[in-house]
Structures are given as C-alpha cells and as structure tokens.
Amino acid sequence: MLKAYIDVTLKKSILDPQGTAVKEGLSKLGFEVETVRIGKHIEVTLNDMNRENAEKLIDEMCLKLLINPEIEVYSYRIEEE
C-alpha cells in the first residue's frame, strides 16, 4: 500500500497570526527564529496502485477538497506502507 503525507500551509502572501504567536513564544524561551508558519498535516492511505496514479489522485484530492487554493498551498511525499 502507498501512503501520502500531505502538508497544507497558508500561502506566503497571507499573514499567519498563529505562527507569529508561536514565534513570540519561542523567543520567550530563548529560541530566536526568523519565521514560524503553522499548517495542517494529512495522511491518506491509498489502495494498491502505481506511484504515478497515486500522485495524480493526491493532486486532485488536494485541489478539490483538502486545500482551498485561494489561501493555501500543499506539498506531499508518498511512501510504501
């Protein structure tokens, strides 16, 4: 079986107040970092298929439901389960 590990984040052009709040928290603990962006992680296990089809399917799922292309972008990796 194949498993897709999908990461969804806000587009760079969109402010991420959660990330900013966490950055401040890190700073208070002494971790000085440039930026923090917060997103979502989605794992999808697929039925048996080849990798090329799996990629096509994941792209379609992302664009149709898993992300809102107006505000979010996604990336993923697919691994043998």
Binding site: L10, I14, P17, Q18, E70
Partner: peptide, 17 residues
C-alpha cells in the same frame, strides 16, 4: 458560500486569533 465558490475569497482565522 465561499467554499462553494458562489462568492469569491475566503474567511481566515481572526487576526488576533
């Protein structure tokens, strides 16, 4: 309505969370 694309744009988390 924005998710349906019947209206443009999207609603994000409030700025002060």
């Amino acid at each position: 309505l924005t998710e349906l694309k019947l209206l443009p744009g999207a609603l994000l988390k409030n700025m002060d969370l």
